[in-house]
Write a protein that binds this DNA or RNA. Structure first.
Length: 228
DNA sequence: GCGACAG
DNA sequence: ATCTTGTCGC
């Protein structure tokens, strides 16, 4: 699959990236805008320890059985430093290369990082969703910004993630007595629907199967690249 | 100035 | 993200 809007350059200065985020953030759709979801994809990137080499992967799952339908990967070199708030400019280039190799178009993509739970309401999930005009959900293991109250210990419990009086996401417990994860709107999916999907995709572990499968794939390839 | 800071 | 040992529990 390929982006649907005019591609923008990635070799940007920090100030230019910030301005671009502000412009693209206006395109984010925060309501459900999709029909049937049969295929859900997960994306992830692995970094090599002492070089800037990285490996990106996309894993598409059957939304009902959670079985792998197709995978695609790509390797490259980081061209942008890790700057909190500009994460997408570091990980999207390799992810786009992997997505380009995908023969099909997923109905929903789960991202390893935030959606609108971001300083300028434009995290990785939003960026990917807007570029491809595809439904996306941000699912992070830790928080970038925002505050939340306490959460019950049972699976399914959640608390609103707030920033400046605004609900930017949800801290969701996907497994009882396990540290919660941070869910936020990426594109074309409302927060309630996003949480429903993340719970459905996390029947057994803390993280959704989509990100777990993508994570396992990139790490397997990274290990293989170093050793055998 | 100080602390926080997706992966 | 990556580095990094043992340990508790099913």
């Amino acid at each position: 699959m390929k982006p649907v809007i005019e591609p923008h350059p990635w070799d940007l200065a920090e100030a230019e990236a910030l301005e671009l985020q502000g412009q693209l953030a206006a395109k984010v759709i925060k309501e459900d805008k999709f029909s049937e979801i049969h295929y859900v994809a997960g994306v992830d990137v692995a970094y090599e320890k002492h070089s800037n080499q990285l490996i990106a992967a996309v894993v598409v799952l059957n939304a009902s059985t959670l079985q792998i339908v197709e995978t695609a990967t790509a390797s490259g070199f980081a061209q942008f430093p890790y700057i909190p708030g500009l994460f997408s400019f570091r990980e999207l280039p390799p992810l786009i290369k992997a997505l380009e190799k995908l023969s099909m178009e997923p109905d929903l993509i789960i991202c390893d990082g935030q959606g609108i739970a971001h300083p300028r309401r434009f995290g990785l999930a939003c960026h990917l969703g807007v570029l491809y005009n595809i439904p996306t959900i941000g699912c992070g293991k830790t928080r970038l910004i925002g505050e939340a109250g306490t959460i019950e210990r049972v699976r399914g419990s959640c608390a609103e993630l707030i920033d400046n009086e605004e609900v930017i996401g949800c801290v969701l417990r996907t497994q009882s007595d396990v540290k919660p994860i941070y869910v936020s709107i990426g594109h074309r999916v409302c927060l309630a629907t996003a949480c429903e999907w993340i719970l459905k995709l996390s029947p057994k572990y803390r993280l959704p199967e989509t990100t777990r499968q993508a994570d396992q794939l990139v790490n397997k390839l990274m290990t293989k690249a170093n050793n055998g």
